[in-house]
Amino acid sequence: MAKALKIDSRDNCAVVLDDVRQGDRVEVRTEAGIVSLNAGSAIAFGHKIALAALAADQPIIKYGAEIGRASAAIPAGAWIHLHNVTCRRGREGRG
């Protein structure tokens, strides 16, 4: 089973620690023990998986702080990256 790490108790995403295929069961190390969920798509090592369903414009929380916002609704287990996150800062032309 693939592994992932929730870094801060406030986070709503985790970092996957193996290359994950769509449908794989992912075990997430969290402050409350292991939580498992199904990967909604392939997710590469080091990338983020949504721990809960996120509404459009909801903050993405990692390291206990906002790293950007959902550009559309993100289901639990989905890959979170450039295609579904907006962050106006530091990316003026692409955000």
């Binding site: 990338h47 790293i67 530091g90 003026e92």
Partner: peptide, 21 residues
Amino acid sequence: KHRSALISPGNEDGGVTTVAE
């Protein structure tokens, strides 16, 4: 505009999505 990203392609490939992250 196409040169405004503060994180590099390698960062993005490695899973870093935003400059705040």
